[in-house]
Amino acid sequence: MRIIVYGSLRRKQGNSHWMTNAQWLGDHELDGYALYDLGHYPAAIPGEGKIYCEVYRINSSIMAELDELKSNTKDYRRELISTPYGSAWIYLYIRSLEGMERIEGGDWVKRAEEEK
């Protein structure tokens, strides 16, 4: 199975240790989604724009760990989408984003550069 990640699970980010045993397949620009800054992690929702992601091959135990990580907040739902590497799971935000700042460039890693 595959997962597509766009924020703190990406390489060299705060939660990348969760992906230690995953196989990186490549980067992907995902069209039709918007990215928002929630502080320590982002939120992706369907919308205008594109977001920069990484696609990984994972096993069921990594998926279970990620489901547990995401279900602790009850803010995300997992959805299957199409990527150049095959279908992959993505976690989409399900709460209101009113008052949250959109990351216009769609790249969590480069968000600080946008603020300048």
Rank of each mutant, 00 (worst) to 15 (best):
W89F: 14
E113V: 12
T83K: 07
Y76M: 14
I103Q: 04
R102F: 01
D107K: 03
S96T: 05
G86Y: 10
K74V: 08
R111N: 02
I103Y: 02
L92V: 15
G105A: 05
R102I: 07
D107I: 05
A88K: 04
E104R: 13
E98S: 07
L80C: 08
S82C: 01
G86H: 09
E113R: 13
L92H: 09
I81A: 08
P84H: 03
A112M: 10
L97K: 07
R77P: 00
E113M: 08
S96R: 06
G99S: 06
G105Y: 02
I94K: 14
K110W: 04
W89V: 06
E113S: 10
Y91A: 05
V109D: 01
K110I: 06
S82R: 11
V109E: 05
W108M: 01
E104K: 14
I81W: 10
T83S: 09
W89T: 03
R102M: 10
V109K: 08
W108D: 00
V109R: 08
E98M: 03
W89D: 04
K74P: 02
S82L: 06
I81M: 10
L97I: 12
I81K: 11
V109P: 00
D107A: 02
T83R: 06
I90L: 12
R78A: 13
D75L: 14
G105S: 09
G86T: 07
V109I: 15
A88H: 08
S87V: 02
R95M: 11
L92A: 08
W89Y: 15
R102Y: 01
R77C: 09
Y93D: 03
E113L: 13
E79H: 14
L80H: 05
E98G: 04
E104C: 03
Y76G: 12
S87L: 00
I103H: 02
S96E: 07
I81R: 11
Y76P: 13
W89Q: 04
P84F: 03
G105Q: 06
Y93C: 06
R95F: 10
K74I: 05
E114I: 14
M100K: 15
